[in-house]
Design a protein around this nucleic acid. Structure first.
Lengths: 98, 98
DNA sequence: CTGATAATTATCAATAATGCTAATTAGCAA
DNA sequence: TTGCTAATTAGCATTATTGATAATTATCAG
């Protein structure tokens, strides 16, 4: 399930979008302005983020407003935390000390 | 810089490797056994993780032992935390209340 | 309806990722 | 050295991602 999330974050432009949206909602055009890429290119990156549920889109009159979906980011954080957590599955090789 | 990290985590097999290594160091062969994929395929996934610095490889006699590199995972966590953190850049649209 | 602006979808070429089999390197034991 | 096991690299086909331009949809003003 977090598969698409990590994949979506695996592109610098898309992480920059997340960073811009962190400061507040932005329209498609406002986002597109920040990049050298053509608008349709940015739109497609936005779709990747939307498919991963990392952002939401809402039409507001003539423009479309994007927002971050915080809970999904938190899920990804949990997933990463699991990768560094101690196990206790009685299967360890190390951590004899501590 | 965390670019390769997220990209590396964007594949289920590679995340499973991280999960297996969480329980302790494993050899290439032990890891390969856990998957349906052919050994060379697993090796390549391991190389992707190694290039992203998410794991380390150390030859031990005839076998090669892999371990997680915890600090890089922690960096990725920081990166994600930045995506949900409040900004205070005097640029907000929302959070008028609270 | 017409025109203008906002944004998306369609299509295509180039590049990257994935997974396989075959060939190769590395260490160790006899 | 020879032979054996562990693991990687090489090469190739298939599929996915990326990015651009062109065409399309959507909303609103008049």
């Amino acid at each position: 399930m977090p598969n698409e999330v990590f994949k979506a974050l695996g592109h610098p432009l898309r992480r920059q979008v997340m960073d811009l949206l962190r400061k507040g909602p932005r329209s498609s055009g406002e986002l597109a302005e920040h990049f050298d890429a053509a608008w349709p290119t940015v739109t497609r990156h936005l779709n990747v983020l939307k498919d991963a549920d990392l952002i939401t889109a809402e039409r507001q009159g003539t423009s479309i407003i994007y927002r971050t979906n915080t809970s999904v980011i938190e899920d990804a954080i949990s997933s990463l935390m699991g990768m560094v957590a101690h196990d206790n599955g009685d299967d360890e090789q190390k951590e004899a000390a501590e």
